[in-house]
């Protein structure tokens, strides 16, 4: 019950985030996931919803509006994200410290669905194929941004491509 109420809040807050980001007029639009968000009509492009497995015309992804992480690089939100990560059962799939379990590692600096803050936000908010659940109905955006900030704070191993003995 509480969760569905929160889900409603999320959609509204998402909208206000877009507004905040672009300071322009907004109209509702539908994302590929079917969710309604508020889109800035004065900026050049729709929100940054893109999937790596899609091939874009001309070979390059359309440019997207800026969708900034309000906590980018900050230590305190990253620390809160570190708490949110196990509390929301992220570690159950991605492993403690996000080193990989049934779900992929999030520490290698390599990404199936893009590693920009906004792309990681999308992955958490909308979910991804093969089992990543959509947390958009469960967590408010600021908590998702804290998770993003935590994930981006994890240091990749020294030499990712080469493993030697």
């Amino acid at each position: 019950m509480m969760r569905s109420t929160r889900g409603l809040t999320v959609v509204l807050t998402m909208g206000s985030l877009f507004v905040g980001a672009a300071c322009g007029k907004t109209t509702p639009a539908r994302t590929p996931g079917g969710n309604i968000v508020q889109v800035d009509t004065q900026s050049a492009a729709p929100p940054a919803v893109r999937h790596d497995e899609r091939v874009f015309a001309g070979g390059s992804a359309p440019s997207a509006i800026s969708f900034p992480n309000p906590f980018a690089g900050e230590a305190m939100p990253a620390a809160e994200g570190a708490q949110l990560f196990p509390a929301n059962n992220c570690d159950g799939c991605h492993g403690g410290g996000a080193v990989g379990w049934v779900g992929p590692s999030l520490t290698a600096g390599r990404w199936r669905f893009g590693g920009a803050d906004a792309e990681i936000f999308q992955s958490i908010y909308y979910g991804r194929p093969h089992g990543m659940p959509a947390y958009g109905g469960l967590l408010p955006p600021d908590m998702i941004w804290k998770l993003v900030t935590y994930i981006k704070s994890l240091p990749p191993p020294k030499d990712v491509p080469t493993e030697s003995w």
Partner: peptide, 19 residues
């Protein structure tokens, strides 16, 4: 999943793990 640590996971270049 510990059995798949390191480069054992061969089907996904985005998922490279520390053993």
């Amino acid at each position: 999943w510990f059995l798949l640590s390191g480069d054992v996971r061969s089907d996904d270049p985005a998922d490279v793990r520390d053993p």
